[in-house]
């Protein structure tokens, strides 16, 4: 398969993730959609890495994975804190993150 096909799949996954971030209201699902977008970026990086025969793109993809894991860690911490304080788990109802 030519590299273009992989890039088209990557673009499609990214757009699905972007649409999900716009429509869903649960912060948990918003984080999941962010994961989709990051993974689409990963797929594009690895496709280009294959295109040039250069493994540096794969190193980039692994760093993106690390950043995604950190983002999930902190995001889920915020969601658990919201739940503890009996705040609504809904991005439309949340107006501030103060205290």
């Amino acid at each position: 398969m030519s590299i273009e096909w992989y890039l088209v799949v990557s673009a499609m996954i990214f757009c699905i993730g972007a649409g999900g971030v716009l429509t869903r209201r649960s912060p948990l699902v918003t984080l999941l959609c962010l994961e989709l977008m990051l993974n689409a970026g990963n797929l594009a990086l690895i496709a280009f890495s294959r295109m040039w025969g250069n493994a540096e793109g794969q190193v980039f993809a692994i760093i993106v994975m690390v950043v995604a894991a950190c983002e999930v860690c902190v995001g889920l911490g915020v969601i658990v804190a919201m739940y503890r304080r009996r705040l609504p788990i809904d991005v439309d109802d949340m107006r501030e993150l103060h205290g």
Binding site: M1, S2, I3, E4, L7, R50, M51, W52, G53, N54
Partner: peptide, 12 residues
């Protein structure tokens, strides 16, 4: 990018 149509660089 011309290489976009191909299968990528030869595998090593």
């Amino acid at each position: 990018l011309k290489a976009l149509d191909g299968e990528g660089a030869p595998y090593q």
